[in-house]
Amino acid sequence: MSDARSDIFARIREALKVKAPKPHLKTDANPGKTSTVAKPWLPDGGETADASLTILAEQLAKLKAVLIRVPDKAAAAKAVAELSAAKNWKKVAFHGHELLRPIAASLPCETWEADASFDKQRLEGCDAGITTCESIVAQLGSILVSSATSGGRALSVLPHVHVVVAEASQVVPDLGEALALAKARHGDQMPSMLSFITGPSRTGDIERILVLGAHGPKELYLVLIG
């Protein structure tokens, strides 16, 4: 008996002997040629940095994610500390990153650099996780985190609150650019996880009524510097 792999490939090659016509397209096959934007038919991500930031703010608001814009790193630390006090966080886990260490140090509660001594049970008991990110997609309000920039896989999803601290220069107009950037940055050494986070975790499984915080964070904050 031949193995499953060769059998399946044989079936595929046999099946594809008869060609299927190209799909019947309703518009011209090569759109976007005349525009500077890669895919000018997708939702707009803004053609200038300012336009992108405006779109990002609108998207995040609709997603019920909170955008906090601050001028510099000190203000970022202050903003996160205020949040921590207001929400009465007891334990906060953070990704060991130079941007985040001073912020963690300014928090009025117990903090833990999660990726230095990972423990899933301990992480489960944390109120909030603080991470950086790869990039931010204005077009969709998505924040691209990775196992490299966000302290592994669980830190950005297991605690009840997720705080992302990023520079405004990390905002890109659209998804295509975020993917291209990740490819350019990591080449064939991609982090084992890349995740586009678009708003706090949610479900509509009960009567299609929106509930935030199904399994992942109930609250999502983006602290944007600059």
């Binding site: 230095a116 969709l140 490299a148 084992s192």
Partner: peptide, 28 residues
């Protein structure tokens, strides 16, 4: 599918936990 701009999590996985990563599965 759901009337959303993107669903909340769209995640790309390439392999198990890589060297230097703190969590993630040992086998994929």
């Amino acid at each position: 599918g759901a009337g959303q701009p993107m669903t909340c999590y769209n995640t790309l996985y390439s392999g198990p936990r890589k060297k230097g990563e703190c969590d993630g599965p040992e086998e994929f």
